[in-house]
């Protein structure tokens, strides 16, 4: 290519890209618009977002617009940055650990929905946030390399240090925080000592779930901290039951994903309608095989067979959100101290 044609080629590319960037998913002026802030994986093409929007739009004569950010934590950061001027009508994707902090911002309005059909292990209820799905944290293991998985958290903590696990960092990720709270819920004041023991089994601590799961599927460690629902993906989408979750006798810590409406919502009625829809069978049926989490209410059809094979924890741990918000820093410091020792 000559210099000038190279330049022309590049500028054409730039133009094409600029055109693609200004493309927005605007609503037609006639309809009302419901703006939903959520995490990014909710609205990818295989996520529940498109199906949910389509189903809801049929019932509401409105247009659903999503704004996606990296994850639940980022969602809260985004709201804090935007303040009361946020365009969000609905914020979908916070988890229970963030609820106290989210309420403290004062941006959220009570949902006023009774939601008696909603059933979450641990019986979480809240006047501001409604659950839409949940999952239990679990140690997922590779059946090909680990024949005797740990049967309890105690087993995991005290087991053979040469059988490694990859965990996530509680300073930067939700599952990491989940494990921290799980250990806290089981061990209480002994949590520091438990971490000091578990430390030898920890291959590495990754900044997020993706890195940890990537290392696990590369075979670097036979165990990873993930969700009880993880095996469902491998069974349904990849047709393999190689990866399984270990059931722990003490019980499992739960992650409940919730949504709420903002005080500044331009369409409060619509927002309320959406929250109601969210706990209905239409929405709940979409969740399991798109978000790979458990539904919180009845679905239209029974769940896929694979979900029946999943670990169903006998006991669920959930520390109150206020306690988590108040103690998170101290607990992370405890974790750091235990994990940083040589």
């Amino acid at each position: 290519m000559s210099k000038s044609s190279q330049l022309k080629f590049l500028s054409r590319l730039a133009l094409a890209a600029a055109a693609s960037l200004v493309f927005t998913t605007g609503a037609s002026a006639a309809d009302k618009t419901l703006t939903v802030y959520t995490y990014e994986s909710f609205i990818t093409e295989w996520g529940p977002g498109a199906k949910v929007a389509e189903a809801f739009e049929k019932t509401c004569e409105c247009k659903v617009t999503y704004v996606g950010v990296a994850d639940g934590v980022e969602l809260l950061t985004r709201l804090k940055l935007e303040g009361a001027a946020s365009k969000a009508d609905i914020v979908l994707g916070l988890d229970t650990n963030l609820v106290a902090e989210a309420k403290a911002t004062g941006f959220f309005a009570p949902h006023g929905i009774e939601a008696k059909d909603v059933k979450v292990p641990g019986d979480f209820t809240d006047d501001t946030f409604l659950p839409y799905d949940y999952g239990h944290f679990a140690v997922v293991y590779d059946t090909q390399t680990l024949k005797t998985p740990p049967k309890s958290l105690k087993d995991l903590v005290e087991g053979d240090p040469s059988q490694k696990i990859v965990i996530e960092d509680p300073r930067t990720s939700t599952p990491g925080l989940g494990l921290l709270l799980w250990v806290k819920a089981v061990y209480g004041d002994e949590a520091g000592a438990a971490w000091a023991k578990l430390k030898d089994r920890v291959l590495t601590v990754t900044p997020g779930w993706s890195e940890a799961y990537g290392l696990f599927t590369k075979g670097e460690a036979p165990m990873v901290l993930s969700y009880t629902t993880s095996p469902a993906y491998h069974m349904v989408a990849e047709n393999t039951d190689r990866y399984q979750a270990a059931e722990f006798s003490e019980g499992h810590y739960i992650q409940i994903e919730v949504a709420g409406m903002t005080k500044s919502a331009k369409e409060p009625e619509l927002a309320k309608q959406f929250l109601g829809f969210m706990t209905g069978p239409e929405f709940q049926s979409i969740i399991p095989t798109t978000n790979w989490m458990m539904p919180v209410a009845a679905t239209k059809e029974p769940l896929p067979e694979a979900f029946g094979k999943l670990v169903n924890p006998a006991k669920t741990f959930l520390l109150p959100s206020e306690d988590v918000a108040a103690n998170r820093k101290a607990w992370i410091d405890e974790w750091l101290a235990a994990m940083s020792k040589n």
Partner: peptide
């Protein structure tokens, strides 16, 4: 460096200031 240090560091003893910055802005706002 942030992702590399955490992923390959083996534990939180291997953390950089960048991790603390990320933590401060994202988790603690």
């Amino acid at each position: 460096s942030f992702t590399l240090v955490l992923t390959l560091g083996g534990g939180p003893a291997a953390s950089t200031i960048e991790v603390a910055i990320y933590q401060a802005l994202r988790f603690d706002f």
